[in-house]
Design a protein around this nucleic acid. Structure first.
Lengths: 259, 259
DNA sequence: TGAATAGTGTCTGTAAGACAGTATCTA
DNA sequence: TAGATACTGTCTTACAGACACTATTCA
């Protein structure tokens, strides 16, 4: 009894099938406010949204026209949603080789007025400088960065308010529970730069207090001092540079962090 | 320009659509080896699989017949994959109200010979005693529990080997990085019972050594002593009982565990 | 010299890890 | 009383958190 025999008799149309499969991407970046010389950065976490056009490519009225939405699109049968997200991201921002990860599926019946459409949601971490070129593009009026603090006040398409809420929770968790902060930073960074990234998602005193964090960074097993290398980009006093090292982080709640 | 107008002109058939949307469930349970009186348990993590029948309900040869597979099935248009997984789980095991969570999507082109079929994968944690009845069922010959140590040596249907590999990684992580272990335990438990659950996924000495773990359990912020309550089910000397308390666990790699 | 950033010194307390010793019960 | 499990005592070492103090540079 082979699969060939079974396939011959299989009829996909027997079952009701979805009307579409899409990938949506929550693109996060960090904008540094007032990058004055000899000043540590103050950062704010932003998410990239597009404004849905009033008409589609063929000139007909568009669904959810005029609303803000996550970039994304229909997945083709010959690709995975992840590949689709990579493609969309490259098309939208010209950026490839960046951190992209699945974080959820949205399939509540009725979530899309066009029918039974399943969305596979991803988040991406794009360093600030990669979006500089993007912002200067032709259709820049249709693409904008919003602080995660007020993005949810917008008029958002479909169930994207929920997806964005979830994405924000996910990136907060990833920044604090994994070494994902390195995706926002240059290869070598100062304690105050890492601190600025983390302060976009937490207010904890252990991170917010300079002296405490400057001391802590030296004991973190996944961060290494770049010996003898300093910079003056954040202060007049030359500051020690650090880098992330590739080790597995033990995040067990039953273990000590010390490794 | 309303959505109604736009919808009138929308034609789902313009795009190629998926041939199916399924939910698969990796059902985990823990079996206690030799539950002798006055002995702490020795546990082993198991996963529930079904053997695909040779013919379908209409007597025709089945796809991937005779292979072992995750329970699951086609999602109906009026439900979410999560609801579908809940339903399947109830039908398969008679259990509801258990821990069930999405952990991934499987959509690689060609993963299912029947066509473009997207699988939404979940894992479930089912305490041992809930499966006792299940195992006595009529079609028990088609359902079996396998130790996660050797489940991957089976002949598995579709890409279920990959899904199961991922599910095992996920449950290992969840057991160590969240309080999910409570789903396998009675409400009140001894240190050696919690220890036995954790030892199914780690060998770390901080957990494996009795004295160390007996002391550590008292300092864990999410576990509470049940004052004055002891049991003799694991030893002749009455043993202190503990329970999980509902607090948010701070799992940041930049913070101390102390809360 | 003052202002700003980046640290270090020092103290107190908590906890980890190792290992030996003690407590409680059943058969 | 032996044997098994469940702890506790004690010691050493490490780091966390708080707060004051020092270091380095530019304007």
């Amino acid at each position: 009894m082979s699969n060939e025999q079974a396939l011959k008799q299989y009829d996909a149309k027997k079952y009701r099938t979805p009307d579409g499969y899409t990938s949506d991407i929550a693109v996060f970046t960090i904008l540094s406010e007032k990058a004055e010389p000899f000043k540590p950065p103050v950062m704010d976490l932003h998410i990239m949204l597009i404004k849905r056009s009033m008409t589609d490519s063929e000139g007909r009225p568009n669904i959810e026209a005029g609303k803000w939405a996550l970039p994304g699109g229909f997945v083709a049968p010959e690709e995975s949603a992840f590949q689709s997200a990579q493609r969309e991201l490259r098309e939208e921002t010209g950026v490839s080789q960046i951190h992209l990860e699945h974080f959820g599926v949205y399939d509540t019946p009725g979530r899309d007025p066009r029918g039974w459409i399943i969305s596979n949601a991803h988040y991406a971490i794009v360093p600030e400088h990669h979006l500089a070129s993007r912002e200067a593009n032709d259709d820049a009026s249709e693409v904008e960065l919003f602080s995660v603090k007020d993005v949810l006040e917008l008029d958002l398409a479909f169930d994207h308010a929920q997806i964005i809420r979830d994405a924000i929770e996910v990136i907060k968790q990833k920044l604090l529970e994994t070494t994902a902060a390195k995706e926002f930073l240059p290869k070598e960074f100062t304690y105050s730069e890492l601190q600025a990234v983390l302060l976009t998602v937490t207010n904890d005193s252990a991170i917010a207090l300079d002296a405490a964090f400057a001391r802590k960074i030296k004991s973190l097993p996944f961060i290494q001092e770049v010996e003898g290398k300093k910079t003056t980009r954040t202060s007049k006093k030359p500051t020690q540079l650090y880098r992330f090292i590739e080790i597995e982080v033990n995040n067990s709640i039953y273990h000590t962090k010390k490794q």
